[in-house]
Design a protein around this nucleic acid. Structure first.
Lengths: 220, 220
DNA sequence: ATCATCGTCGTGAAATTTTCCCGGCACCGG
DNA sequence: CCGGTGCCGGGAAAATTTCACGACGATGAT
């Protein structure tokens, strides 16, 4: 178990970050980086090719995002070990990632030791969550900010996503084959359920909870 | 001029990214990393202490953000050379950074050579903009999406920021000593000027243009 | 000096939206 | 069967958004 190195694949769209991982990890004996991918699709391909012991994965990537990539990797290999390493210090993301099958969630603001620790934990089968996210989770629990997805019914959530994406009430009514009146009613109900007064707060909540990502904004 | 190495300070709140920079730059002869900071305040302090030839700076950092940090550094040293290296592939940010006094703007998605190139350019006094941002700038120019800041009057912009940050119309009226009616009028006028129909589009536009940052969202 | 322009602030009134309350349907578990 | 819940929309009051308009001061050109 100890005479052969554990193999690792890095997935991050920023070359400089991969370089950083590589540099940090190669100081650690017994670890070897065998593949690098800059996106979800490439990660999938390279995983099948190289079958690494552990994947270190960023979340925000163009194309196939991190969460989706995790899902696909785990679908291909039920026992894939995937450690999420991301800038999003956000409990909602962490929950999504773990649900998708991640073995750990560490934020990029963590000190290097934390990453190394998490890598070791993940390799030995433990689930590693960085302390700040633990704290976030506890906080959001205490603050009672239940995930929007849990609070809303499927239909309501659908409308919420369209509100955030589409334009007007009428357009949504069109697409969903509803009366504009119903959409307006749902819109109102959603804000009520989520405890926000204005649409602006609604968007901010959605961003906090990862329902809407900055990448979805048509920014790129 | 060539027998002594050019000194560089790295500013990024992610240790792994600093490690990446360091690893990439030390392959380059004639460059030496002499300081690392994880935030704007620390950067300011260390700059005064070490006086590096070049600063490589991230934009999104807790506390004093990158743009503000650039402003302060340039205030202290009019000739400070600061190269922005960020994940934000966003023309609006680039414009802000350059206006604040940055000597260049490179996105983290760029290949390593681009960073090295930009470092050299910046050191020799040139302004380096990575190709994707050039493209963005051209695009946003063509698309006619003028920066909101240029389109709005000072008062309107003020109200816009408060709309994005504060809560209700009445609260803003309170703070600004205006009639709630006036705020509502401004709100309407702003949406008109920016060509958006709903508040949700307004927030999205603000995010695209960097008026509102994800970090401002109260996520942290 | 005067005029035109623009930003700012406000009013009033119409148009629209939001919100609240309601009823009808369908589905599910006891 | 009955109560609870999600889903869909109507009606009407309440709130808001929007539009037209006037007043005022600062600016700037003639």
């Amino acid at each position: 178990m100890s005479n052969t190195a554990r193999t690792i694949m890095l997935v991050d769209d920023h070359a400089v970050v991969r370089e950083g991982y590589r540099s940090m990890l190669q100081k650690q004996p017994g670890l070897r980086v065998v593949a690098e991918a800059s996106g979800g699709a490439e990660a999938y391909r390279l995983y099948k090719e190289t079958g690494p012991d552990l994947v270190i994965m960023d979340l925000s990537m163009p194309g196939i995002g991190g969460i989706e990539a995790i899902r696909r990797l785990r679908q291909w290999d039920k026992h894939a070990k995937i450690l999420v390493f991301t800038m999003h210090q956000n409990a909602a993301f962490a929950v999504q990632a773990i649900r998708a099958g991640a073995s750990g969630y560490v934020t990029k603001t963590s000190p290097p030791e934390t990453l190394v620790h998490a890598v070791m934990d993940a390799l030995s089968g433990k689930i590693a969550i960085s302390p700040d996210i633990d704290h976030e989770l506890a906080l959001s629990h205490l603050a009672g900010e239940t995930a929007a997805a849990d609070l809303l019914t499927a239909r309501e959530f659908e409308v919420l996503r369209m509100l955030l994406a589409e334009k007007t009430t009428d357009e949504i009514a069109e697409v969903l084959h509803l009366s504009p009146k119903t959409v307006a009613n749902l819109h109102s109900l959603i804000k009520d359920k989520l405890g926000v007064g204005t649409d602006i707060e609604l968007v901010r909540l959605a961003l906090r909870q990862g329902i809407l990502t900055q990448i979805d904004l048509g920014e790129r």
